[in-house]
Design a protein around this nucleic acid. Structure first.
Lengths: 101, 101
DNA sequence: GTTTGTTTTGACAATATAGGTCAAATATAG
DNA sequence: CTATATTTGACCTATATTGTCAAAACAAAC
């Protein structure tokens, strides 16, 4: 249940890298990476993919963390979050079927 | 499992109102309401509340439809949507507990 | 306590996304 | 064809998100 930020921070540290180094190699401002790691800012989808490649993390895994962060952030202040999620699930299933036809 | 748009359209029609009339009373451009009804645009939270009051729909019900639309729209193109939703659910639960402390 | 190296913060700019307005186009009914 | 209702699309504005940079804060070493 890790957040995107926790994951990329863990990988950075286990590789013994400084923000400065990651920033240079990935060509992303280090202030932003610092904010990603602490969940203060959300990366774009392209950045998520870039991090997956950089740290050799399975892209799907990182994507799940990132998207679930977004959904959680969007609903945490709302009532009935469980209901909202289950209705959303039904709608997604319906939409996915519809598109294939 | 209705979308926000389907709900407000149903209420408008069952009240025998034209878009023009709703638009005038609610002070929202009728083109926008037309787009809401067909899901082409998403209303703001304030507008959702306004529609709930206008049609005397239970606000929670409309809010659930609106938020689940947003989540569904956000995830429909993604893989692993079920996994994403279940991780999001855990994260929300965790965050809600954390806030109360 | 000052030097050196790292991370965090915050103000501001740039960009992207969402929402609003309006008039014209397209139904639909008579 | 006329009249009324809805939809579409182009354009504009507002808001939210992301990027940049320099300074502040933190930490370890000495």
């Amino acid at each position: 249940m890790d957040s995107f930020g926790e994951i990329i921070k863990r990988f950075r540290e286990s590789n013994g890298l400084f923000l400065r180094q990651v920033a240079a190699k990935m060509d992303i401002d280090q202030a932003i990476i610092s904010k990603f790691e602490r969940g203060e800012r959300k990366p774009t989808k392209e950045q998520v993919q870039k991090f997956a490649r950089f740290y050799k993390i399975e892209e799907e895994k990182l994507m799940i963390a990132w998207l679930s962060d977004k959904v959680a952030y969007e609903l945490v202040e709302e009532k009935n979050h469980y209901k909202i999620l289950s209705v959303a699930e039904q709608k997604i299933r319906f939409l996915k079927i519809k598109k294939k036809v």
